[in-house]
Design a protein around this nucleic acid. Structure first.
Lengths: 194, 194, 194, 194
DNA sequence: TATGAATGAGATTTCATTCAT
DNA sequence: AATGAATGAAATCTCATTCAT
C-alpha cells in the first residue's frame, strides 16, 4: 500500500529533525569544523548518504539550525511584546530566557561559537544582526517605559549580563548559581516601580 | 663554527612567537578546527614543516597559547591583589580588564571558543578551573571587604557581566558602547563607600 | 534501494583482499617502512582513502596479514598432526612446507623481515611466539616417536634448517638447489626406520 | 697548536665509526627505511648536519656498513683458507661464525634484512653475490677434501643451516640452544675422519 | 668541524561528497 | 528513501637534506 503524500512529508520531517538534532549536539561540543558528516550520521543513527538527501552541503545544516533557532527566539519575544505592563514583560523575558538556556545549553553554546567564527559569519551574520537589532530596540523601549534614564545603555547591559550568565552556566553548569542570579535580576528593576 | 646556544635560543624564541601569534589570530577568527597548519605557516611566513620543530602536534599550539595567556592574566591580578583599598583594587581590575579586552579582542574570542569546546577541554579544563577558582575567590574577598552582603553571588555576577560585555564587544566591536559600560561599572559600587 | 548486507559484505571482502595482496607483495619487496600507502593503493588499483575504510592505520595491514598467514600455517599443521605414522607426518611436513615456500616466496620474505623488526614486534611477537611454541613442541613429539635421542635439539635443528633453506631460496631463488635439499631431508631420517 | 694531519684523520675516523655503529644498531632494529637521520644523530650523540659531513646521502651509510662488514667476513675466511687440515678449518669456521653471531647479533639481523630488500639490492647485490660465490666455492672444496660425496649440495646445506640457526638465534636469543647446536655441528662431520 | 633551524617533498590520515544499487 | 563503498582533495605530520653561522 503506497504511503500518502502526508506520510512521506512527515517521514522527511522526522529524518531532517534527526539530522539537525545530532548536528547541533556535535557542533556545540566540537565546533562546526570539528564535526564530521560521519559523526553526524552515526549520532543520528542513519547513513552518511542520507544526509545529502536532505542537505546539499554541510554548510546548509548549520544554516538551517540557525534559522530555526532564531525562529524560536523570535516566537518567544513576540509573546512578550504583546504585554502591556513592562515590568511583567521583563519578568517574563528573564524567566523564559533562563528556562531556555537551562533546557538548551547545548544549543546556546553552539550559538555563541558560531557567532564568533568568521568563516561562518557569511551564513549567520545577516540573520543575527537582524535579530539583535530587534531585540535591543525592544529592550530599549522596555527600559524607557519602566523609567530608566539611560535606557540605551541599560538595554546593552541587560543583554550583556544575560550572555555572560549563560556563558558561565555553559562552562560551569551545576556549580554556577544560575537560579540565584535569576532572582537577583528579577528584583533588580523593582526599584523603578512606584 | 656553530652558532652559540644563546643565538639558537633567540632564533627559537622568535620563530615560536611567530607561530603562536599567527595561530592565535587564526584560531580566533576561524576556530581551532577551522584553521589548518598550512594557513598558520602562511600567516607566520614559514614552512609547514618548521611548525613541527616547535610543536609536536597541532593541539600543542593551543595548549601553549592558553598557558601563556593565563600567565598574563595571573600577572595582572597579582598586582591588584597587593592593594590595600578594595575600591581602588576593583577600579583597577575594571580598568585593566577593559583595556586588555580592547587590545586583545582576538585572544578573548579564542579564549571563549576554546573554553566551550569539549574536545579541547581535556587540555584546557585543568588550567581554566584553577584560574577561575582563584579569580572568583579573590572577587569574593573583595566584595566582602567592600561590604556587599551576598558577596559570593556578587562575585559571580561581576564575573559574568564582564564575560557578557566582552562577548558583545567581540561580536559588535565598534558598535558596542564598551566605554559607557566601563564607566557604569566603575560607579556601580560607589554606593558602598563610607 | 540500498544493496543488501550480503552484497556489501562481498564488496568489502573483495577490496580487502585487494589491499592485503598488494601490501604483502610490496612489504616483501621493500619492507614495511619502505612501502607507502600511495604505492599500495596504486598496486591495488584503488584510491588512497579507501584503504582507511578497511584499516585504521598502516600498521593494521601488517597485523591482519600476519594473522591470516598464521591461520594458514596452522591449518597446514593441523592436518599433519592427525596422522598416526610419524615418518609419514614428517614427510608431509617437508613436502608441504617446501611447496608453500616455493609458491609463496614473497610472503615468506615478509615473514622473516617482520619477525626481525623491533618496531613491529609489538604486533607480531605474541602471535609468533604462540605459533612457534606449538610448532616446536609438535616437532619434538614427532622426533621422540621416531626415536631420535636428543629430540628437543633435533626439533630446533630441523626448524632452523628449514628457515635457512627458505632464506637462501628467497635470496638466490632459481640458483638455489631447493629440490635437492628437499630430497636430502626426506631421506635424512630414514635411518631411524626399522 | 694546530692538530697534525694524522690527528684530524683519526678524529674523522672516530666520528665516522660513531655514525656507522649507531646506524647499524638502528637499521637492524627498525630497518633502513624505518630509521631516520635524526634518530641516528641522537643515537650517535652528534648533530644531524655532521652526518652529511661524512656521508653524502643516507644510502651511503648502508653502503659503507655492508662493505666494511664483508671485509670482516672475508678476513675471517682468509685465515681459515690457509689451513691444511680441512677438519680443522671446518671446526674453526663453525667456532668463529658462532662467536661472531653471538657478539654481533644486531649486525646479523641487519644483514639479513638488507639482503631481502629489493630497493637496497642495487647497492648490496653485487657485493653479496661476490661474497657468497667465494664462500660457497670454498665450502665445496672443503667438503670435497673431507670426502663428502655430494659436496656441492653439502656446502649449500651447511650454509643454509648456519643461516637458519642464526636467524632463530636473532629471534629467540637466550631461549635458542645455540651452543648445543654448535656442538652438534662440530661433531657432524667426524664420521668422515678415518 | 659542528650545530640545529629551516625547507620542501612526500608520507599518513581525514573527510565532504558522489554513486551504484 | 536509504546504504555505505569509493573518490579526491586537503589535512596533519615526517624526514632527508641544506645552509647560515
Amino acid at each position: 500500500m503506497p504511503r500518502t503524500k502526508e506520510q512521506f512529508a512527515e517521514m522527511r520531517e522526522k529524518t531532517k529533525e534527526l539530522i539537525t538534532r545530532a548536528s547541533m549536539k556535535l557542533f556545540a561540543e566540537n565546533s562546526y569544523h570539528g564535526t564530521s558528516i560521519t559523526q553526524i550520521a552515526k549520532e543520528a543513527g542513519i547513513s552518511k548518504g542520507l544526509i545529502y538527501n536532505y542537505f546539499d552541503k554541510k554548510e546548509e545544516i548549520v544554516e538551517v539550525i540557525i534559522k530555526e533557532a532564531f525562529g524560536e527566539f523570535e516566537k518567544m519575544f513576540a509573546e512578550q511584546m504583546k504585554m502591556e505592563d513592562p515590568f511583567e514583560a521583563l519578568g517574563l523575558i528573564i524567566e523564559s530566557s533562563f528556562k531556555m538556556v537551562k533546557s538548551q545549553t547545548e544549543f546556546y553554546k553552539l550559538f555563541i561559537m558560531i557567532s564568533l567564527q568568521k568563516d561562518l559569519q557569511e551564513i549567520t551574520m545577516r540573520i543575527m544582526t537582524d535579530f539583535y537589532g530587534n531585540v535591543y530596540s525592544y529592550f530599549e523601549e522596555l527600559f524607557k517605559r519602566i523609567g530608566v534614564e539611560n535606557y540605551v545603555l541599560e538595554a546593552r547591559i541587560f543583554g550583556a549580563t544575560f550572555d555572560g550568565v549563560f556563558l558561565n552556566y555553559s562552562f560551569f553548569s551545576q556549580e554556577f548559581p544560575i537560579d540565584d542570579i535569576k532572582n537577583y535580576l528579577l528584583k533588580k528593576y523593582d526599584v523603578y516601580k512606584k
